[in-house]
């Protein structure tokens, strides 16, 4: 159970900091002595955190379902023809900057949460897709052959053999995707989505370093918290499916 301690502590710290930012006013006054307002007050940090997290969670859910489904399809006999294409998209997509996705999405979807959600889904899809392919392709061919030869249906092979064996790699893909998207979501503030990027943008526009710091600290802390959650989840996975490796 020790693996759950870091995420619990980080979550507590994140919550406390979001709620109690005004108590740190003297500190930020020292950072930015020439401004009267050193604590961002247009929205509460808790609200921004909640909205930010919601964007990431929704995009991660949709992205995971789509990427895992796509990865599974491309590795089935019926979808094998698409495998090279899908792998290429998965690699090329990584080189496409998220700002460019935003720039393309805004004219179609307008300002607000919708375009950033699209950008997050598209951008988060790719690490998961790449890892799903790697994980499924990495399953030992003799294991798959034995499973089929002993009388499992292709669906049973997928559910009982392939996904448990590939799951650890897929989970790592989701972890990468979510961590990247926590940072990317902040850019949404430039097109009117309410995220923890708001104080950062406001600070940059007004030349208020204290605002920038407050947003950046919370975004960084959120990324650390979620990452440590995944770390713990991976350890649980290892205990469940790879007990001999976990010792």
């Amino acid at each position: 159970m020790r693996s759950w301690l870091p995420p619990v502590l980080l979550t507590a710290l994140l919550g406390a900091l979001s709620a109690g930012m005004p108590t740190l006013e003297p500190l930020f006054q020292w950072v930015q002595p020439d401004k009267q307002n050193v604590i961002y007050e247009r929205e509460s940090f808790l609200f921004l955190l909640q909205n930010h997290l919601m964007l990431v969670v929704i995009s991660a859910l949709i992205g995971t379902v789509a990427a895992v489904a796509g990865g599974i399809y491309a590795t089935r006999p019926s979808g094998r023809d698409f495998l090279p294409l899908v792998s290429q998209i998965a690699s090329i997509g990584q080189t496409f900057p998220p700002v460019a996705v935003l720039a393309l999405a805004v004219p179609v979807l307008g300002f607000g949460e919708a375009p950033i959600l699209v950008a997050l889904i598209l951008y988060g899809l790719l690490p998961i897709l790449r890892n799903t392919l790697a994980g499924l392709e990495g399953v030992d061919a003799t294991v798959r052959q034995a499973a089929l030869g002993m009388g499992m249906s292709p669906f049973q092979v997928l559910l009982q053999v392939e996904l448990p064996l590939a799951g650890r790699v897929i989970l790592a893909g989701i972890r990468t995707s979510v961590t990247i998207n926590i940072a990317t979501a902040a850019i949404g503030s430039t097109i009117g989505a309410r995220t923890l990027g708001d104080p950062v943008i406001a600070g940059l526009v007004n030349g208020n370093t204290a605002y920038v710091l407050q947003g950046a600290i919370l975004i960084g802390l959120l990324a650390l918290t979620v990452d440590s959650l995944f770390e713990a989840a991976e350890q649980v996975w290892d205990r469940r499916f790879l007990p001999q490796a976990a010792g």
């Binding site: 030992d140 003799t142 294991v143 052959q145 034995a146 499973a147 030869g149 002993m150 053999v161 448990p164 064996l165 499916f241 790879l242």
Partner: peptide, 12 residues
């Protein structure tokens, strides 16, 4: 029954 080289045992 089906037995293959390299066993194909399920590692998990």
């Amino acid at each position: 029954g089906y037995v293959i080289q390299g066993t194909g045992l399920f590692p998990h």
